[in-house]
Design a protein around this nucleic acid. Structure first.
Lengths: 140, 140
DNA sequence: TGCCTTATTGTAAGTTTTTGCAATAACAAT
DNA sequence: ATTGTTATTGCAAAAACTTACAATAAGGCA
């Protein structure tokens, strides 16, 4: 089950619809992992989905937060930033057939810890997508 | 000691200046007692000080919050509202000589409690100014 | 009191966020 | 597949908020 399909089901269960705009924005949030301002999200999502507009981004972010797919938090002042809600897992995508499987975050936690110690960085991006070749494609 | 004089001293002690704009905005905050949006504050303060501009209101509110004279809080969404910081006392102003004395809030708490019980309202405005004639002017 | 320094304001323009409504497209049902 | 319902989007304009900089005025000092 891909991430997008899960999101779609979650929305449909509540009587809402999945759209290309929502997918693009979710994809940006997932890929970045960290807090982003609506403006930043708009710029990045626009590259994935030309024609996307700002009002849609604002409405979508509020919508995603209300429905548990994103979380909002207060940046300095009164401004909101957004991040993906379930940011505690990762993916491996098959280079050949594009199959996507999940990787639990705990498998990576020691890596993150080491990276943070070594670099001095904090809150290193928590959603990562790896690429590889899946078992099936390895035999073909 | 009037409220305004106290505020002036607090600012001066930190190397800042008291201005008519800051006084007008503080007066609005004190008089309303509850949370107000920058826009609401602007409209009310404009009546007291014609010519006041919006950028000044925004800057002043941020300034007052930084210096402990006002408090900011997050309204729904990401928007900031402001209220007076020390909202736990009241005043009586002499109708004749304009002398101003403080009234501790606890003297009024039972009144507030009764009002809230009777009306069903909550957070009834916590700063009130009464008017009267001071002892000195009574003898004259 | 009048001058001097500089914190603070107003101006004008820019950016961000919101809103109402007609056009679009997701998806359920035929 | 096709159609109907209606959630969702884009558009256009407004409202909210921010910024840079020149003009103003508060408060210290002579």
């Amino acid at each position: 089950m891909t991430c997008s399909a899960e999101y779609t089901l979650q929305l449909r269960a509540r009587g809402f619809r999945m759209t290309s705009q929502r997918l693009a924005i979710l994809h940006v949030l997932r890929h970045e992992g960290t807090h982003l301002s609506p403006g930043e999200i708009y710029k990045k999502a626009l590259m994935e989905l030309p024609g996307l507009t700002e009002p849609t981004v604002y409405r979508t972010l509020e919508f995603l937060a209300e429905n548990g797919l994103a979380r909002s938090s207060h940046a300095g002042g009164g401004r909101l930033t957004y991040q993906i809600a379930a940011a505690d897992h990762h993916h491996i995508v098959c280079r050949v057939c594009k199959t996507e499987i999940e990787v639990e975050h705990r498998l990576l936690s020691s890596l993150y810890h080491a990276l943070e110690t070594a670099s001095g960085f904090k809150n290193i991006g928590s959603h990562v997508t790896f690429f590889g070749v899946c078992p099936k494609c390895q035999t073909n």
